[in-house]
């Protein structure tokens, strides 16, 4: 519910210090909230932290929200010097979910941004280390999005194993599957060779060959196998 007059004193101060930034005031219980555009965010946050009248030195909370037509990042800030609080809401479009990072201003943002990235898919540009924090790497989906459903109750153990394999196969990049096929081929070839060697050795012993002749017999068999394969 946007209201025009900024009723909280911090919003008045903000209006005086940064008149050119377009923002909307939203009345929420506990903290005054402003909605800003993505482009104004770096300059706004810098001013919020460094200006002596604002001095927001504490980042309390960084959350992502999934309104179905757009995403949103919400920052909750507090100033220890003045005691006032502020909430900053930034709408993020679904097709281009990029937001500038705040880790250079508040180190507390580091882990919060990693978590928001893996849960919603919002990419924080400039983050030093945007790996997944709570989930495994390479999962392929973002759990907290509304489009991701809840899990079904599994009754049988086979269901679980099948589903895990399907998930892993779907999430693996196509190159990985080719590598696995290569490796599988190599394993099959080695197994075939071992069988041929075993059979050749038995035949040689049956014929009564020993030592050097047996070895030559086995090598003949291997050469024949390679010719067939090649």
């Amino acid at each position: 519910m946007p209201q025009d007059a900024g009723q909280a004193p911090v919003v008045e101060r903000l209006r005086a210090i940064l008149p050119q930034v377009p923002w909307e005031f939203v009345a929420t219980p506990n903290d005054p909230a402003i909605v800003v555009r993505r482009e104004d965010l770096p300059h706004l946050m810098q001013t919020l932290k460094e200006h002596p009248d604002l001095a927001f030195d504490y980042l309390r909370c960084l959350s992502g929200v999934d309104h179905i037509d757009q995403l949103e990042v919400v920052y909750h800030l507090r100033s220890f010097r003045h005691g006032h609080t502020l909430a900053v809401k930034v709408p993020v479009p679904l097709e281009d979910p990029h937001v500038p990072t705040m880790t250079h201003l508040w180190q507390a943002a580091n882990w919060h941004e990693r978590e928001t990235h893996e849960m919603f898919g919002i990419v924080f540009d400039g983050h030093p280390d945007l790996r997944p924090l709570l989930l495994e790497e390479g999962l392929g989906y973002h759990p907290l999005r509304k489009s991701h459903p809840l899990a079904e109750i599994e009754e049988w153990q086979e269901d679980f194993l099948e589903r895990e394999e399907a998930l892993v196969a779907a999430a693996a990049p196509p190159g990985a599957r080719a590598e696995e096929d290569e490796r599988a081929k190599k394993i099959a070839l080695a197994q075939k060779k071992a069988e041929v060697i075993k059979r050749a050795r038995e035949e040689a012993r049956a014929k009564g060959l020993t030592g050097e002749e047996e070895r030559k017999y086995v090598q003949e068999a291997l050469r024949r196998l390679e010719q067939e394969g090649g």
Binding site: L135, P143, L150, A151, I153, E154, Q157, F160
Partner: peptide, 13 residues
């Protein structure tokens, strides 16, 4: 927590 897909539904799996 069984309805969340990152939770193993029972350690006997």
């Amino acid at each position: 927590y069984s309805r969340y897909d990152r939770v193993l539904q029972g350690v006997d799996k």
